[in-house]
């Protein structure tokens, strides 16, 4: 039996999003869709206002006409240390694990959707229907990821299946886990390296270094959620740093 002390992990996973590098290409959205067996957001589902996107790219207009610029912010589950979704779940379907991740246990979920109301970032998704894929896509489903049934919540898992595989393979091969060994689907797909995934407990990891950047901010920090996803503000020759949504 594993005791609680042994279960405490040496990792603290997190992500840093350099907003300055984001071009809004949506590659992360597509990669996440493919990796995590996310139900298809068809036109019908869109009209029902029930689209799924564990990571989404929000677009804002910045500046006054004619100097208008489009700005992009990728938003996924912030894996808050102080998550508002966790205490409100009546059945502990969502809880905080020892690796700094906010995890969703599908089997426990009864679908009260209270966590989704509690989430200020709106990154939790409810399966209103049993998900279906066209025949052509059925073989594309990722066997490492559960296909969620109807009536439960789901959200970004930091590609927990990739983390587990990375740790397992490192142990099998007998070497230490290096920064960059584990990437989530979105970070791997990002062409400009705007998204970086890593371990905050590793002082030399890219995320630890980026977290010391002056441009660092967190989304909706007034809510005191203490996210594990950090953002680096956009630097603009004309407008200076743009700090999120103040």
């Amino acid at each position: 039996m594993v005791t609680a002390a042994e279960r405490v992990s040496s990792h603290k996973w997190g992500m840093v999003v350099d907003v300055d590098r984001c071009t809004g290409c949506q590659a992360c959205v597509m990669a996440c869709q493919a990796e995590n067996n996310i139900p298809l957001s068809t036109e019908d589902i869109y009209r029902q206002k029930r689209t799924f996107a564990w990571i989404r790219v929000e677009r804002y207009w910045y500046g006054d006409f004619p100097d208008v610029k489009a700005r992009f912010i990728p938003i996924m589950c912030q894996h808050c240390e102080n998550a508002p979704c966790e205490p409100v779940c009546p059945v502990f379907a969502t809880y905080h694990n020892t690796e700094g991740m906010n995890v969703q246990i599908y089997n426990r979920c009864v679908g009260t959707r209270y966590c989704a109301n509690g989430c200020p970032y709106n990154v939790r998704f409810f399966n209103y229907w049993e998900p279906v894929w066209p025949v052509s896509l059925r073989n594309q489903l990722n066997p490492d990821v559960t296909v969620r049934s109807r009536g439960i919540m789901e959200k970004c898992s930091f590609c927990v299946q990739r983390i587990r595989r990375g740790v397992r393979e490192a142990a099998r091969d007998g070497h230490d886990l290096q920064d960059g060994d584990i990437g989530t689907a979105c970070t791997d797909a990002c062409p400009t390296n705007a998204l970086v995934f890593g371990d905050y407990n590793d002082e030399n990891s890219r995320v630890s270094i980026m977290a010391k950047d002056d441009r660092k901010y967190t989304l909706l920090d007034a809510l005191n959620t203490d996210p594990n996803v950090l953002y680096l503000a956009q630097v603009d020759a004309t407008g200076g740093a743009i700090g999120g949504h103040d």
Partner: peptide
């Protein structure tokens, strides 16, 4: 107390 936002605290 439950809200825990910065102004709440």
């Amino acid at each position: 107390w439950y809200g825990r936002s910065e102004s709440d605290s």
